[in-house]
């Protein structure tokens, strides 16, 4: 079965359950799902939203500034072991209309820091949709918090209304979590992978390819366990962006710290993936032996991936 198939809900209902078309019977054959569905991550799956992502800096805490009804959905994250790192400043109508909440934020920050028996590495102030209309200069509020606590303070915006805009919240929060990085001497054999809030699979071929191309140290935010490791991210010679949502953050790092970036597109066809690695290899200004090692390795990866796919197809009896 290779032809595309579709049916409207009305047609399906008219046919009745017993006449469900064969194409929709999942146990009779494999159902192809487009790359779009592979990319989709349902919020119900407890993936990384702005709030969880905002805690990517090791040792940081978050102050969520929101009306109670809006802030409470974050409570779900507590199940994932974040309850020690979330703090809430709840707003009411008067706060918002008068802007009073803005003077409360530095006080709340101070209270949070005082209540902890350690000094957090950073405080993320996450403000939700309600503030979007008010035009608050959160950078300024954060400076006031820093004056109050001495702890670096960074804004993150959970503005659900900008989801379909050029700079959606998930792109903005990536910039926030990298924003504490400072310039330092860059090392030519080190790079970062930017894109996700969990690290790339340990057995991902990307590590192997990078190493064979002469990269000695590959860093990822999600692998940083201490703030010292976090700060090492700015030693990178370049950033490899594997998710377009990290592009804005990578651009910011290029502008602020002079770290250039290369973006890889997520693809699902083996020959395209292979081609992309080849193109990437060409971009590296490396001695020919390491570049050709990388090229050979990418060829090997291709063969082994093709073999796995063939196995899956055989197993699925297609």
């Amino acid at each position: 079965m290779t032809d595309a198939f579709y049916i409207t809900a009305a047609e399906l209902a008219d046919r009745g359950f017993d006449n469900t078309p064969d194409e929709l019977m999942s146990h009779r054959h494999m159902i192809y799902s487009s790359p779009a569905t592979l990319d989709f991550n349902s919020p119900g799956a407890k993936g990384f939203g702005v709030k969880r992502a905002g805690l990517a800096i090791p040792g940081s805490v978050m102050l969520l500034v929101a009306p109670g009804c809006c802030g409470r959905n974050t409570a779900l994250l507590n199940e994932l072991g974040y309850n020690e790192r979330f703090f809430y400043l709840l707003l009411d109508d008067t706060d918002i209309v008068t802007g009073r909440h803005l003077t409360k934020i530095p006080k709340a920050c101070k209270e949070v820091c005082d209540s902890l028996d350690y000094t957090p590495t950073a405080v993320m102030i996450c403000i939700t949709c309600v503030d979007a209309l008010l035009g608050t200069d959160m950078e300024r509020v954060c400076r006031k918090c820093e004056d109050e606590t001495g702890v670096p303070t960074v804004p993150a915006y959970m503005y659900a209304l900008t989801r379909e805009k050029r700079l959606p919240p998930m792109a903005g929060v990536r910039k926030s979590v990298y924003s504490l990085l400072e310039p330092q001497k860059r090392i030519s054999s080190e790079c970062n992978i930017m894109g996700y809030f969990s690290h790339v699979h340990d057995d991902c071929e990307l590590y192997d390819l990078l190493h064979s191309a002469g990269i000695k140290k590959v860093r990822e935010l999600a692998r940083c366990e201490t703030i010292e490791q976090y700060h090492e991210l700015s030693r990178a010679n370049f950033n490899l962006v594997i998710n377009p949502e990290a592009r804005y953050a990578a651009q910011d790092l290029e502008k602020r710290l002079g770290i250039p970036f290369i973006e890889l597109t997520r693809m699902y066809r083996i020959d395209k993936i292979h081609n992309q690695y080849r193109l990437l290899g060409r971009h590296w200004v490396l001695c020919s032996t390491t570049a050709s090692t990388a090229a050979r390795r990418s060829g090997q990866w291709r063969t082994s991936t093709e073999n796995s796919v063939r196995c899956v197809l055989r197993w699925a009896n297609v």
């Binding site: 802007g99 008010l134 035009g135 608050t136 200069d137 950078e139 300024r140």
Partner: peptide
């Protein structure tokens, strides 16, 4: 009058 009208004097 509100945050929006203060935007032009921001950094």
């Amino acid at each position: 009058v509100c945050g929006g009208f203060a935007a032009p004097i921001r950094e």
